[in-house]
Design a binder for these strands. Structure first.
Lengths: 238, 238
DNA sequence: CAGTGGTCTAGACCACCAA
DNA sequence: TGGTGGTCTAGACCACTGA
C-alpha cells in the first residue's frame, strides 16, 4: 500500500467514524506530515483525493473542512457497474442474459462503437431486475480481441470484475451521455413498463482502455422513475 | 499566470491546433520540464489537469496520449451555468425572469435548501428560450446575506458572473442530482410543452461556498427531448 | 501578525513498458 | 535494458485567512 493511500484510508475512516465531524477542520498539512512521518507533498496528494471524493473542502489560508457525507449516496458517476452498485447498496436484484452472441462490426456499428471495421465483437443484451421488476436493459458491445473467452455465465455475474481481475485489462475512462428517448418496441417487450410510459432514460458509454483503444460500447436503458444520478461538481477556476 | 497554467494553456492550444494529434504521444515529462524550464513536479501538475479535462490519457511506463477532443461537446457537468453554455455554444436564446421575490426560509424550505431557519433569501423563477421555445425552467433560492443586492436585471443576465466577478464570492462545489419527474401544472403553464409530454428532467443542485456554507439551491427543469448530459468518467482504482 | 494552503524546485528511487 | 510515468523527500517562497 502506497503511503498516500494509507493516509487517505486513515483519514476516510476517521471521517466516517466521526472522529473528524462535519464542518471540523482537519489538522494542518504540516501537522499531518508530522503525524504520518511523510513529506507535505505526500499529505497534499492524499488531501487532493479526499477533496475529489467529496469528503473535504480545502480552503487557502484556512484549512481543510470536513463535508457532510450523509448526502453522498448512489453515485452512478465514476464508471460504476451495476453489480458493484447492487452489492454496495444491498438491493434485491437479478440479472438475465437475453442475448449472448458474436457479431462482425459493419459500417454502422463501427460508427456507433468506434471499433475497427470488420473486427469481431460480443453482443450482449441483459435485463436487470430490481425488487422483482425488470427495470434496466443493458446492451453491450465488447471487442473480442480484448475480451478473451467471455461466457454467458460471466455476463450474468459481473463483466467488469472478470475483465479487471481475471484478464487484468486496464479500463481507464468512459465518455458518458445521458438522454431521454422514446420507449422502443424492445423496451416494451423486455421491461416491466406501464402502458403510459412513453420515455426511457438512456445512458450511453464509450469505454476506453489505458492505451486509448475503444473497447466497449454500452447503452443502458432505465425505467424513468427508477433513475437517479448524483455527482459532486467542482467549479473550474481555469 | 502561474507556471503550470502556462503549461496547460500551451499544451491545450497545441492539441486543439492539431500540433499534437489524436493518439499522438506528448513529449515525456522530463522533456517537457526542459522545454518549459520547470521542475517535473510542475509539468505533472499540468498534465494532471489535462487528464482530468479529458484531453490526454497518461500511461505508466509509456507516455501521455492525446484523446479525441471532437467528442467533448456540451459538458453540463462541472457547474456550468446556462449563460456560459449559451455563449460557448452559440445558441439563439433568451431568458425571462418570471418571479423575482424575497422570502423567509421556513421549516420546509430549510430542509430543501440547507439554509438556516428564518434566514432571508431571494426566490427567482426564470424560463429560458432556445430557438423560440421555452424549454428550461429554473427556480433559484439564494441567501440574501451573501448575494448582496441582486436585481432583476442581473438575474436576466448571469447570476454567476455577478457573484463571482462583482461580489467575488468563492463558489466551490455543488451536489447535483438528475431525476425524471412528472410534468407539473407550473411546467405546463410556463414551458412550451406538447400535450403528450408527461415527464420532465429535473436537475437539482445544492451550491456551496468555499467555507462550506450552503448558499444556493436550484432546480432546473428541462424539456425531455432537449436534455443532454455528457461527462468523462474515470475508473476509480481506489 | 502567525499559520494556513498553493506553487515550485532538484533531487531520488521504484514500477512499468516496449524493443 | 533504457526510457517512461508514479511516488516521495526536504526544502523554499508566496498568497491568503483570521485575530
Amino acid at each position: 500500500m502506497k503511503k498516500y493511500e494509507i493516509i487517505v484510508t486513515d483519514l476516510e475512516q476517521k471521517i466516517f467514524k466521526d472522529i473528524y465531524k462535519e464542518n471540523d477542520l482537519l489538522p494542518s498539512e504540516n501537522e499531518l506530515a508530522k503525524q504520518y512521518a511523510s513529506s507535505r507533498a505526500t499529505v497534499r496528494q492524499a488531501l487532493k483525493i479526499l477533496e475529489e471524493n467529496g469528503l473535504i473542502q480545502r480552503r487557502h489560508g484556512y484549512g481543510s473542512i470536513v463535508i457532510s457525507h450523509e448526502k453522498l449516496l448512489f453515485p452512478i458517476s465514476g464508471l460504476t457497474s451495476f453489480k458493484e452498485l447492487q452489492t454496495s447498496l444491498g438491493f434485491q436484484s437479478k440479472t438475465e442474459v437475453t442475448i449472448f452472441g458474436e457479431i462482425t462490426i459493419n459500417q454502422e456499428l463501427s460508427a456507433l462503437t468506434g471499433f475497427p471495421l470488420n473486427s469481431e465483437a460480443y453482443h450482449i443484451l441483459r435485463r436487470r431486475q430490481i425488487d422483482g421488476k425488470f427495470t434496466v436493459l443493458d446492451r453491450d458491445f465488447l471487442r473480442k480481441d480484448f475480451a478473451g473467452n467471455l461466457t454467458k455465465e460471466i455476463a450474468q455475474d459481473s463483466i467488469y470484475a472478470y475483465l479487471e481481475n481475471t484478464l487484468n485489462l486496464d479500463i481507464a475512462y468512459a465518455q458518458k451521455e445521458i438522454t431521454i428517448d422514446f420507449v422502443s418496441e424492445e423496451d416494451l417487450e423486455l421491461l416491466d413498463l406501464t402502458p403510459q410510459d412513453r420515455h426511457i432514460v438512456s445512458v450511453k458509454s464509450h469505454v476506453y482502455l489505458a492505451d486509448n483503444t475503444p473497447f466497449q460500447y454500452t447503452e443502458s436503458r432505465h425505467q424513468v422513475d427508477k433513475f437517479r444520478f448524483t455527482e459532486i461538481a467542482r467549479r473550474q477556476k481555469r
